[in-house]
């Protein structure tokens, strides 16, 4: 089956990624066919360049760059992280790079020098999560007006409707029909 085939491809790729990047990454694993790894902001540009250029990896295709705010995920929560996914059109596997950044004054080096596609993705992440991408040529807002306050992507940014009223779907549909909502 296709799924198992891509899983074994990812396993092989994981070994190559490990040997190419060595100490700069931590917790490399395969998650649903995607190579998953964590990398410190300081090493990011080097890691991305290595992912793009190393033989046997060649993740030339830029997938996306975004962020995940883990502050409400699980017990105790986590921090803010930048998430970059690139894909290897030569060896057919994806790599997801997680970059934890400080919650207060989050900053991360820009990878737009490695992947031109990151230019827009970093602008979007900047306005949505307030992460500053150092070295980005023009970090202006892409979607929001320039005078917009707050960062809508963060969990702490509540939609006004939800601030007034809880999510109606939290109840079971049947309970809701019986008189909830």
């Amino acid at each position: 089956m296709a799924q198992t085939q891509s899983a074994s491809r990812a396993d092989e790729a994981l070994e190559r990624v490990k040997s190419a990047l060595k100490e700069t990454i931590s917790e490399p694993k395969v998650n649903f066919g995607t190579v998953d790894l964590i990398c410190e902001p300081g090493d990011l540009v080097g890691v991305m360049t290595a992912l793009r250029d190393s033989e046997g990896i060649e993740c030339k295709f830029f997938g996306f760059l975004s962020a995940v705010d883990r502050s409400e995920l699980g017990e105790g929560g986590g921090g803010l992280e930048v998430l970059i996914v690139v894909y290897s059109p030569v060896h057919f596997f994806s790599v997801a790079v997680h970059v934890p950044v400080a919650a207060a004054a989050p900053a991360c080096p820009s990878v737009s020098g490695v992947y031109s596609g990151a230019l827009w993705h970093e602008r979007e992440t900047h306005e949505m999560f307030g992460i500053v991408f150092e070295g980005h040529p023009q970090l202006s807002n892409l979607y929001l007006p320039e005078d917009f306050e707050g960062h809508p992507g963060l969990r702490s940014f509540k939609l006004p409707g939800r601030a007034v009223k809880d999510w109606p779907g939290a109840k079971d549909p049947e309970e809701a029909a019986a008189g909830g909502r």
Binding site: F62, G63, F64, S66, V68, D69, R70, E72, L73, G74, L83, V85, A96, S116, G117, L119, W120, H121, W167, G169
Partner: peptide, 25 residues
């Protein structure tokens, strides 16, 4: 990219749309 915390709602859903990346070029 779906991050789930076990709820009925996704914790985070990053949507990578094709036109966005295409047009940035």
């Amino acid at each position: 990219y779906l991050v789930s915390d076990g709820d009925r709602r996704p914790y985070r859903l990053k949507i990578r749309t094709p036109s966005y990346s295409n047009v940035s070029a």
